[in-house]
Amino acid sequence: MNSAAEDDYIIEEAERTLLPSQSTEKATEYETAISEAGYGRFHLKLLLLCGWAVSSDAIEVVCISFVLPSATCDFRMTGFYKGLLTAIIFLGMLFGGYIWGAISDIFGRRSTLLMSLLINSIGGGVSSLCQKYWMFLIFRLISGIGVGGALPVIFTYFCEFQPKAKRGIMISVLATCWMSGNIISAALACFYGLWMWFPEIFNKMEKYGGTVCSISHGNSTVNETQSFCDPISKSIYWEGLVVAAANLPGNIFTIFFIEKVGRRWLLSASMVASGLSAFAILGMKTRLHNILLSCLFSCISVVGWNALDVLNPELYPTELRSTATGFFSGVGRLATIAANLSFGLLVDIHCAIPLILVSGLLVFGGLSSLLLPETRNVDLH
């Protein structure tokens, strides 16, 4: 382990902001200083603190999917209002990502991260006490603004302390903390448009039987809006826990292969395979088969998310890294909002439509990601 003096040396060298006017020779000195300082207590403490923040953000995002079946009864929500509830946090993340990202590049990562986490905790805490749908919606939005700022800043801040030889592995380890948040959420009760609806789908299958797209009760098709307060099977929360835990093999795979295979190849393969597994959900006829396929989707898709978490901060220069990461994260939130709203509307008509759309977009995105540059073992600028 490094001594305290070595830890201070790492911090001093890493906090020197590289301006555009400085030469590429200076950037090389930065990477050299980070590498020669070694790896020790400072990096472990940094991983624990940033990992805790990532897990907290994961709980805030994912918890609504486990609340949804009960909230449907309490707030008497139709499919559209359920879609709006799952989408509202991503609207907050859309604005929060860009605003906090820009603030981080101007005023520094640490203070911005602390402020965004504070806003997240306030929004989440107050929303847990809300008794009205519109109040719940507002504070979920506030929570999303905090989460949207914290996530890009966490990964940017963590990335800038990692030597290039270990950067991919350590960011993948940090990304694994998202799985921890998922598991905690499931025990107390990540692909957003589809993932957020898994517990709702499990609940329908548990109550009515049949395939995911032909939920029936006896010989007649059941309309979801017929009863807001049907008893909720506790097994759906255990099923959610199992699906969340299925992230683990994918996380381990990423840690071991991110530096060997490269970022874009893992991202592409993961997205294409996720699209195919999502499409296969249409053919599942039993709850067990659906759970197993959902676990497969969870395991495969997390590889792509981890690769993206590594790739994102490596593509941009230091003075724009948080702003760019937050901006493109915000663009992704627009798609997430559209996915959740459309899923809420279309799933009540026929769930085959959104599942086919999810599958097609994942495959298309996976093939398109091959056009991205490979950043493995590249100096941060």
Rank of each mutant, 00 (worst) to 15 (best):
L267C: 06
G283H: 08
C299I: 04
A280I: 07
S277L: 15
W265C: 05
V303Y: 02
S268Q: 10
S268T: 08
C295H: 11
G283P: 13
F297C: 12
N306P: 10
A278W: 04
S294Q: 12
A273D: 06
R287Q: 12
S301L: 09
I291Y: 07
L276P: 03
L292R: 07
A278R: 06
K285R: 03
W305C: 10
S301G: 06
S294I: 08
H289Y: 02
G283Y: 14
M271D: 11
A273W: 02
L288Q: 05
W265H: 05
S268M: 09
H289N: 04
G283L: 05
L267I: 01
S270H: 01
M284H: 05
I291L: 15
G275H: 07
L288A: 03
C299Y: 01
S274K: 09
R287A: 12
N306A: 13
N306I: 00
K285S: 04
L293G: 01
S298C: 07
A280Q: 07
I281A: 11
G304F: 10
A269S: 15
T286Y: 00
A269G: 12
S274D: 14
M271T: 07
T286N: 01
T286P: 08
F279D: 03
A278M: 15
I300A: 00
F297A: 12
A280H: 05
S294N: 14
L292A: 13
M271W: 06
I291G: 13
I281V: 10
W265V: 02
L276V: 09
G283Q: 08
S301C: 07
